[in-house]
């Protein structure tokens, strides 16, 4: 299903805090998270134990998700983090981190770990 990704600052999912005070090997619990509208949840036949595989031409991640009525239908909301930035891009010399087209599917795999992303960035 195609949705629009918006990455925003969330005080309860704050990357700087997790890096400074949290544990690196479980950071995905706080930061690899997406919020979707309950109608999109229904249309994708999601269940509580599933995860979301979110991808576009820039990259892909697997994240936990929660339903949130405040998120408009058709939108997937994520905290700004190294996870959401696997999907953001640059256009005309500007960073594009809002309203990005992404494909969202159900997944049974666990959320992407930080070390997997770091290896990808290092080209390993």
């Amino acid at each position: 299903m195609e949705l629009r990704l918006n990455s925003v600052r969330m005080i309860n999912h704050d990357q700087s805090k997790e890096f400074s005070l949290g544990e690196l090997d479980i950071m995905e619990e706080e930061l690899a998270i997406a919020y979707i509208n309950p109608q999109d949840f229904e249309e994708m036949y999601l269940t509580a134990s599933l995860k979301l595989h979110i991808s576009n031409e820039n990259g892909e991640i697997i994240v936990n998700f929660e339903q949130d009525e405040d998120v408009p239908k058709g939108t997937v909301l994520m905290p700004v983090s190294i996870w959401s930035n696997q999907l953001t891009t640059v256009k005309d010399g500007e960073i594009v981190n809002k309203n990005i087209a992404v494909q969202v599917e159900a997944s049974r795999d666990p959320p992407t770990k930080l070390n997997v992303i770091i290896k990808k960035i290092r080209n390993e």
Partner: peptide
């Protein structure tokens, strides 16, 4: 922390 804050294309 540009590695985390920039799109992956730039952080790579």
């Amino acid at each position: 922390d540009p590695i985390s804050h920039l799109p992956m294309r730039l952080s790579k």
